[in-house]
Design a protein around this nucleic acid. Sequence first.
DNA 1: ACACCGACTGAACGATTGTTTAGCATGCTG
DNA 2: CAGCATGCTAAACAATCGTTCAGTCGGTGT
Lengths: 217, 217
Amino acid sequence: MLYMRSISDDRTSRAIIRDESLRLFAVNGPGTVTVRQIAAAAGVSPALVVHHFGSKEGLHQEVDQYVLDVFEAMLGELTGESGAELLDPKSGASSLSEAFARHLPDGSPVPAYVRRLLLSDTDAGRLLFRRLYDLSRSALDGLAAAGLAAPGQDPAVRAAFLLANDLALFLLRDRLTEVLGTDPLSADGMARWAPEMLSIYAGGLNATPPQPQGEAP
Amino acid sequence: MLYMRSISDDRTSRAIIRDESLRLFAVNGPGTVTVRQIAAAAGVSPALVVHHFGSKEGLHQEVDQYVLDVFEAMLGELTGESGAELLDPKSGASSLSEAFARHLPDGSPVPAYVRRLLLSDTDAGRLLFRRLYDLSRSALDGLAAAGLAAPGQDPAVRAAFLLANDLALFLLRDRLTEVLGTDPLSADGMARWAPEMLSIYAGGLNATPPQPQGEAP
DNA sequence: ACACCGACTGAACGATTGTTTAGCATGCTG
DNA sequence: CAGCATGCTAAACAATCGTTCAGTCGGTGT
């Protein structure tokens, strides 16, 4: 933990405070983290935290907005590179959660924070979920237009079902890692998870897809 | 809020404290709920809470164990009435989450508490999830033995996938209610959700099942 | 009758909470 | 140079936290 920021950290103290509180909020929840903990993690005095953000609540809101922005920027990259193929079984990124994990640095606290937001009964969380739902709807529309999936009797529910399943992987990641022995969002884990998921999405629980091994180039 | 327990409440003060803290923990999280809030909700002094449970942490552990017991008792009823048919597409209760909601009184705080446990990175949460996972495995085994579903290339992952999807409905209930306009765990909502889910599980995203309307008795 | 015990409370304990205040540097601007 | 905002801290603020303590009350056993 020593020398974390001692050598050439060109972030302003304000940015450091924001980053450190983002990290602490993601791990422990905004309610239980104290201003003094944040100040200590950022290497400043508690008074400076209030000086820059007005109050702990002000800091909380700014961190929320910051995460929302990061998330939105990441969505921009995703739709930019793969269009409506986010849920496309043929694409490499077969899961929104997996793409999410791929587009952020390894130790980033943002995923944990987003997880907390999604489950948090706040406007920020509602906004986030609504955004993902709209994305899921348009992705399903794209698949339907391409003949890759049927819109179903109730497209709204079908899109919600696919989104919920995708997010479940993200929300229950740690629990699934425990019972499976592999992090389902890691490369190895995805290699186990994706075929099973795609098989069900392709033909249901009874389908027996051809053995995917030994395919000619 | 008046007269909540004023007329013939034969619970002991200890039980009232436990119930009220269960309710408050479920809503706000154990970390942010204060002993004084619990005492006020139970209509007793803060000192009595400590007198009965040793400390706030002691109370917390006892409530955890209590919820675990309630949950286990409910699982007993479920497996007693429907055996391995918990995930059976043909059974009326097509979702574990839905059965969960059905077997508890309407305003019960237990589901919200269980939700918090499942997401909480505690031994109690791990225990709970492991229990559900084992149930999902045996349910999948049962379906496979009955020829109703293939075990898949990786049965462990397939069981985890089905469980995660089921729990997603439970974890994201409020968010799904917002975007769908219907609580997916209510009777009306399940009538929309179940056919879509069963259709995908039966034949994948491309299947077009026969219109289920106008069927002769 | 007395002693005892468990349920229970009011008041206080020290620790910790978010926030305020006064003041010290530093650097820019006139 | 003076003036003034900016970044920042040490110290203290009242409020609230979990917990402790002394003591009251109602019953139960002897």
